[in-house]
Design a protein around this nucleic acid. Structure first.
Length: 171
DNA sequence: TGCACGATCTCG
DNA sequence: GAGATCGTGCAT
């Protein structure tokens, strides 16, 4: 299966968040083995005006990669112990990202980061050329749930109520 | 130079 | 319901 192209990732984060559902996340390990995961839950973070998006504070060393255009990995440490895995989307200078909240039956962005052994070295990783993590294309899924995003009470009513959390309907 | 806090999880 | 645990952004 082919990797999702950079052109696809340059689209809007809300569209990509939906498109990534049901797609395959591939992780290769130090011993050469490889694991395939199905992406089951995502969230979209949309630009500087989205108060829930880290880029709403402007361009900083941490958010820099979100300004470089879609198809890169954005990781950050939360609560001093969990690495969050995000995919940068959108055009250059339009900071957006999709948070991977669930893969297979591992639901919860903290658990995903732990399962994938994500760390600071993944910051800025290119999903087109990386040999340790990438996302493969597949059939689009239209059967999914939408819900408000989690853990962003600080963002204010307008933004925290946006239905930008997407999850596969488990059967 | 210091401080409060967060896109979370686990345990009791 | 609280603690673990630390990089980041903003105040001093």
């Amino acid at each position: 299966m082919k990797r999702i192209s950079q052109k696809e990732f340059s689209r809007d984060a809300v569209q990509i968040a939906q498109k990534l559902l049901g797609k395959t996340l591939v992780r290769t390990w130090d011993d050469g083995s490889k694991t395939h995961y199905v992406i089951t839950e995502t969230e979209a973070y949309l630009g500087e005006e989205d108060l829930a998006c880290h880029a709403s504070k402007g361009r900083t060393p941490r958010t820099e990669v979100m300004y470089s255009g879609g198809g890169k990995v954005y990781v950050y440490l939360i609560y001093g112990m969990y690495w969050m895995l995000n995919v940068v989307t959108g055009a250059e200078n339009h900071p957006q990202a999709v948070l991977i909240r669930g893969i297979d039956n591992i639901i919860g962005s903290g658990k995903v980061g732990r399962e994938l052994k994500i760390n600071k070295s993944f910051y800025g990783e290119d999903l087109q050329t990386s040999n340790r993590i990438w996302i493969e294309d597949g059939p689009d899924v239209t059967d999914f749930n939408t819900a408000p995003r989690v853990g962003i009470d600080y963002a204010g009513d307008e933004w925290k109520n946006k239905p930008w959390r997407f999850s596969l309907i488990m059967k």
